[in-house]
Design a protein around this nucleic acid. Structure first.
Lengths: 134, 134
DNA sequence: AGTCTGCTTTACGTTAACGTAAACGTCAAG
DNA sequence: CTTGACGTTTACGTTAACGTAAAGCAGACT
């Protein structure tokens, strides 16, 4: 679509404007993520070339951001994905990291559920008051 | 406990150090929330006096913060709690606000579930690799 | 009286996550 | 060949959410 070759080819590439547009962020933001080492697109001369792997990472970054994680923390998380997991010690390290992350996420989930439940109870009470008014 | 009167009395009060300590934040943070209008403790002379209502608000603030909401947004939310909900128009306004908030929270929940599911799948794959190593 | 502890205001400093110009390269179209 | 459209680096600006002095009051202890 963006480059020659069959649609959906595994070596499809995009420019910075294309992915920024597609993900709804600015080029500045994308370059910022690169400065912090969250993505590292290839270069064609001086131009940045984004591939599927970069898109995947960007999606992870944005989700992490929506969840309120600081970019530095997001970096350590997605870096874990690329860690060589051949040796036992590395696997065990990844597992402990996963546990930490999950504990964090579970805490967030608890907060979320509480907030949602509160909102719903509130809504019910509002609707009841409304009906009482005719 | 902190002031004369029976424990659990509805007019119990606390100093800034006490609530800051109890909620695990700094006095500076608490005063910052006040600067932004998120809490407004009574004064005894020049000293701030915190009551149950302030504690409730602080709890809401901190949960909002854990959820990654900006303080300004948190302010508009908890201000809604104190809105007079006598008239129909006010009730309807609150209901629309509740809907907006809930849509936001549902989005976050989706992100959260996705992240957790991903982590779990990853963990399974790691454990499988570990077993393969003996 | 002196000193400590706890609280106060005022105000500048800091970090994160970009925004926003400035100044320049480059390739295809007019 | 000049004009755009798009890309690049460098660097200062901005907002949020506090941190961190600095300097002073007020009641309790010694």
């Amino acid at each position: 679509m963006a480059t020659p070759g069959a649609a959906g080819a595994p070596d499809e590439t995009w420019t910075i404007a294309q992915i920024a547009d597609e993900f709804g962020v600015t080029h500045r933001a994308v370059r910022h993520y690169e400065d912090l080492g969250l993505i590292s697109p290839r270069r064609e001369g001086t131009r940045r070339i984004y591939r599927r792997r970069d898109r995947t990472r960007l999606a992870l970054i944005l989700r992490g951001r929506r969840l309120g994680f600081p970019l530095e923390e997001i970096r350590t998380i997605i870096d874990l994905y690329d860690l060589p997991r051949g040796k036992r010690s590395q696997l065990e390290y990844v597992l402990t990291q996963i546990d930490e992350r999950r504990a964090d996420l579970e805490q967030r989930r608890a907060d979320l559920e509480a907030a949602i439940a509160e909102l719903e109870a509130w809504e019910v009470s509002c609707r009841r008051d409304l009906e009482a008014l005719g």
